[in-house]
Amino acid sequence: MREFSGKVAVVTGAASGIGRALALRFAHEGMHLMLADVDPSGLAETAAQARPARVLTQITDVSDATAVQHLAARTFGELGAVHVLCNNAGVFQGGHIWTRTPEDFAWLLGVNLWGVLHGIQSFVPRMIEQDTEGHIVNTVSVAGLFAGPYMGGYCVSKYAALAASQTLAQDLALTGAKLKVTAVCPGGVRTRIDDSERVRPADLIVGRTRDDRQAQAIVESVVEKGIDPGEVARQVVAAIREERFLLLTHPEYAKGLREQVESLLDGGLPKPPHYE
């Protein structure tokens, strides 16, 4: 898909960070937007910055299948089509994998994995029926490529999101659909992922642990040193045009990925990643 002007993009997690940057970039490309998030004020701010593009917004918890179905129904009903779907919403929770509670996993998997699956199930069948070129962009993470300490639950959710993305791309290719897929695996980006607790549902809140706080300090440092979200959005648009499946926002991770594969093939445990 090379032409964007006049087409429709859907972005979840659009209230800040990469989601906001994607929305603004698509608006610059002349697209109509449906923006979704659980943060009303942040969503309104993104919409205001994206205008004069045509912008619709909807408060949407992507872990809720019915909410995402309503998002899809409204988008197709009011905008008539979807050409780019960005399953971008994501949250972070750190700590040793054995200390993570069922509530932690429910939250992480609900947003980071089920948010992607709900987006696929609610939008992709209709996008296929359009019989037009289109693209699905799933925001994964380098944590979906490199499992490391203090990131157990987060890595589990992101590895699964990468698997969902790859399977989707292969299914679409097998059936001859005109849709392509990009799995975005950002390294450090200046987003609000380190402040994910602000959107954690009250019924899934648990007490903080020492290892959780240590993980929080790590991710705060990574975010502080990260690249601008606008650079990620620029790379995503290029990846859509190039029909690139895997997008590493930080090229230096390619070397680590090769080393990890070699270590696994030798039967060894890969070195812990150095997130940056």
Rank of each mutant, 00 (worst) to 15 (best):
L168H: 06
A147H: 14
W98C: 04
D195F: 11
T182V: 09
G80S: 03
L168D: 06
P125T: 05
C86I: 06
F4P: 02
A164L: 14
H274K: 07
M31Q: 02
T167C: 13
N88M: 06
D212S: 12
D104R: 12
A169F: 12
P102D: 15
D61N: 00
N112F: 02
N138R: 04
Q58I: 00
G187V: 09
N88G: 08
E29H: 07
W114E: 14
V181N: 02
K178S: 11
D228S: 05
V156M: 13
P272K: 15
I136C: 06
A72S: 09
R192P: 05
E220H: 15
G17M: 02
L145A: 09
G267S: 09
P186A: 05
G95R: 05
F26N: 08
V10N: 06
F123L: 11
A173H: 05
Q130Y: 08
G134A: 14
H118A: 11
V219S: 04
L168F: 14
L257M: 10
V82Q: 13
A48L: 15
A36S: 07
W114L: 15
Q58F: 01
G187M: 08
D131T: 12
L257Y: 04
S141E: 07
A81Y: 06
V91T: 11
A254W: 13
A44S: 15
F4W: 03
G77V: 00
G256R: 13
G42W: 07
V8F: 02
D228C: 04
G94C: 07
T99R: 10
K180G: 15
L145P: 00
A177F: 01
G268T: 05
W107R: 00
Y159F: 12
V124S: 10
E220R: 15
T101S: 13
I97E: 05
L204R: 01
S157P: 04
E252L: 10
A183Q: 02
V111A: 04
A164Q: 12
L172T: 05
I136F: 00
A27R: 11
L257H: 01
P270N: 14
A183T: 03
A48G: 15
A15Q: 09
K225P: 02
D104W: 08
V156Q: 03
T209V: 08
I128F: 14
K178I: 12
Q130R: 03
A47E: 04
A89K: 00
Q130V: 13
A143K: 08
R190K: 05
E133F: 10
Q130F: 11
R126L: 10
E243Q: 15
A15S: 04
F92I: 13
V8I: 08
L56S: 12
R25P: 08
A44T: 12
E29V: 07
T182H: 02
Y154S: 01
L269N: 04
E243K: 14
A239E: 06
